[in-house]
């Protein structure tokens, strides 16, 4: 498996972004339907069934794959809706379904085996050989998106212990909590990634100006405050500033994003099959720019390029906004 070229998997929140990502050099794009069957269920985002079919045609025409995320947990009594989403993805010609719920995995394994690959979503939080082996044996899962809590060394050890492909997040938003195991959003807002496909949903967000500047609130809870003119952020719960133990701090995580560009060669050596860029909610201009840069960096790594060259290719991606290599470096913990 190792000599294989690493695959670059890129986000597509809309058809326009899908086209932009494919044209910028994505090996595969991932997207979801315009409902709560996918974990980026934001207003105005995602695909209708005809749009997905058209997107698949476009991507396949340029040699790129389309992975469809059906990565929320089916609601009691509504499992059929998630099954139908999987059926629709297969009908559209999707190359893989990214799922986490046993109900979806089981349905695809039983009915579409051979027509579509199954990838285990990061929402399933499978990070041990035992868990991954279980999903592989039971449902024929071919690839696991690894939870963002493992270091590169641990990923290497994991790859030696499993016989399915791994996909690692390399750039974009960063969940600090183990994904699929976090209910912070529903605690504050009533809506969560697992159930509704949203975290810190926009309808619960308010930006309130007062004498001290601006407060970003979620369902009335102050997530951060900004002085007049200070760059603001979206009030994502785990990136907020809170008071604990007598001091105010970004207790869980600073408002940073993930950039593991400098670790691409490390991922390659660790046996990672695919590198994933996060950001289905991001605009096409942004996605195209990031994909282009990572395309050239991955190609350079594959061609044996050195670290200086990789850094140069990704330089523009590390400007503006604070970044971290997250759990890939052990000191993050």
């Amino acid at each position: 498996m190792w000599p294989q070229r690493m695959e670059l998997v890129c986000p597509a929140g809309t058809p326009a972004t899908l086209r932009a990502a494919v044209q910028a050099g994505a090996d595969a794009v991932y997207c979801g339907f315009r409902d709560d069957t996918n974990a980026r269920n934001f207003p105005g985002l995602n695909f209708s069934v005809p749009e997905l079919a058209e997107g698949v045609r476009f991507a396949h025409g340029l040699g790129a794959k389309v992975l469809v995320a059906i990565n929320t947990f089916a609601r009691v009594g509504e499992v059929d809706r998630w099954r139908r989403a999987a059926d629709a993805a297969v009908e559209c010609g999707a190359d893989a379904i990214i799922a986490c719920d046993v109900a979806v995995l089981d349905h695809v394994a039983r009915n579409h085996s051979g027509r579509v690959r199954l990838h285990l979503s990061v929402q399933a939080a499978a990070g041990t050989p035992e868990a991954i082996g279980f999903y592989a044996r039971t449902f024929g899962v071919r690839r696991v998106v690894i939870p963002r809590v493992l270091s590169v060394q641990e990923i290497a050890a994991l790859n030696r212990a499993i016989d399915v492909e791994t996909e690692a997040f390399v750039f974009g938003g960063l969940c600090v909590m183990i994904e699929g195991r976090c209910y912070l959003s529903s605690y504050a807002t009533g809506r969560s990634p697992n159930l509704n496909g949203v975290c810190s949903p926009p309808e619960e967000v308010s930006y309130d100006e007062d004498a001290d500047g601006m407060a970003a609130r979620l369902s009335g809870f102050t997530i951060d405050r900004y002085r007049p003119g200070e760059p603001a952020g979206y009030p994502t719960l785990c990136k907020g500033r809170f008071a604990a133990g007598g001091k105010a701090s970004y207790l869980f995580e600073e408002p940073v994003s993930l950039n593991a560009g400098s670790l691409i060669a490390g991922f390659k050596a660790a046996g990672v099959t695919a590198l994933k860029i996060e950001g289905r909610q991001r605009g096409k201009g942004y996605v195209a720019e990031v994909v282009r840069a990572f395309r050239s960096a991955v190609d350079a790594v594959e061609a044996g390029g050195d670290a200086v060259e990789i850094d140069r290719l990704l330089a523009a991606q590390s400007e503006g906004g604070r970044q971290t290599a997250g759990a890939y470096r052990k000191t993050w913990r």
């Binding site: 809309t14 605009g283 096409k284």
Partner: peptide, 20 residues
């Protein structure tokens, strides 16, 4: 600056994003 229903602004932004 935005005020009011943030989700409506997000929807508008995403629709315009895709519209080209």
């Amino acid at each position: 600056a935005i005020g009011g229903r943030t989700e409506a602004v997000v929807a508008l932004r995403n629709a315009i994003e895709d519209a080209e």
